[in-house]
Write a protein that binds this DNA or RNA. Structure first.
Lengths: 214, 214
DNA sequence: CCCACCATACCGCCTTTGGGGTATTTTTAT
DNA sequence: ATAAAAATACCCCAAAGGCGGTATGGTGGG
């Protein structure tokens, strides 16, 4: 076994109803660490920047601000962070919105600690945990779509397709031939991909592709 | 479990002392198959070309030709094949030469079938089995050096270093700055790397680097 | 109906890679 | 001591990628 990497978790919670139990739970896990905690939405972005968490546990009820909006804001600045939403309300509409925004999970605060821990690990492993009854779709990266990175980063079908071909080592020209496009169009898609992923080089793109199983 | 890929093994053996027992042993393994057998060094290269083996079991005592020289010749044409040398002689000098040439293992013919099988699987998994007493260094890719792909592909220290930097997304210029070289030198190393790996694009290089944990 | 998004395509300009060389110095192995 | 391998560096030229634009047809939602 390698030395086991530690995953940093940031808590964003207004009420603190949940956090004491949660924190002692997390403290028992050698591979998980709470890297910070904020209670105001205004501090959230800064905290993310400061602590570079792998996972954010986000309370949906922050003063005034909608947790989902905050989630979206965080993701737009830090597209690679994974966010698990905690809520007291089992509202399909909110769940759906969370999913659309690109969060990795939505679970009820009355979930058992076991369920919670399972959800956390699941999300850290690249899966998602949605639904009010915390059914953990133990799904490592598989299909680019369906709550995967593709929708999270707003990648279109064409873009994912082209990422795969770039990863295979094809040039713009070859890609164009293969899917019957102008090389110029491939270049355009490529520019958009770079923009969406916040990268600028093929090397970064290949790494992204491999990490996400494209 | 995935459908379990079958590994092809090519035997190059002059004496056939070993092969009958060996072949029945291999036949019992569902995931291993003997894809060919030759007894003359002159046929070896052609057989490798024809059968694309994953592993070659190479007798060190071929008529006239030194098995190590043959191993070197095979590797120069097929750098990705893995070669396990079989010998009756426990000669540290030969062992050392085998290692330097880039073979993955050197083991005595009187090794137990268990040891042999262990060595074969080990080498197929990317490890090495050297030493006369068949100590299997059950080592998945870790350190580039120490009988890993680096020596197998004759990559030098500088080259591995530069592969790592390329993978990180640095340009020739940036690499040059970082390790205090001329960009032209970095280009030269890069050309050599491409030649040794038989590739021509960064994308392929990044994939190689990730696969080998550089 | 309009707007946002997607997919398509082109232009120009500059940087970076890739492939072909050659050459010198330093290190290592025999 | 000497030969081989590694590391350094330069040349030229072509190919590919990155970055800045702009533009048009299609589609789907409010």
């Amino acid at each position: 076994m390698p030395p086991e990497p530690v995953s940093r978790i940031l808590l964003i919670d207004d009420h603190r109803v949940f956090n004491d139990a949660l924190k002692s739970l997390l403290n028992e896990q050698p591979d998980l660490t709470v890297c910070g905690q904020v209670s105001k939405a205004s501090e959230a972005i800064h905290a993310v920047q400061r602590t570079s968490p792998h996972l954010i546990l986000l309370d949906i009820n922050l003063q005034g601000v909608n947790g989902i909006d905050l989630g979206r804001a965080i993701l737009s600045d830090f597209p690679l962070v994974r966010i698990l939403m905690l809520t007291m309300y089992n509202q399909p509409k909110l769940l759906d919105e969370a999913r659309r925004v690109g969060l990795q999970g939505y679970l009820l605060k009355d979930a058992s600690t076991n369920d919670l821990l399972r959800a956390i690990r699941n999300v850290l492993n690249g899966g998602t945990s949605f639904d009010a009854n915390v059914p953990n779709l133990t799904s490592p990266p598989e299909d680019p779509f369906g709550d995967q990175f593709a929708s999270r980063l707003h990648l279109t079908f064409r873009e994912v397709e082209i990422i795969a071909l770039i990863r295979e080592g094809l040039s713009n020209e070859q890609i164009a031939d293969k899917i019957h496009l102008s090389p110029e169009t491939v270049k355009t898609h490529r520019k958009n991909i770079h923009f969406k992923l916040g990268i600028s080089k093929v090397t970064e793109l290949v790494q992204f592709a491999i990490k996400n199983g494209i």
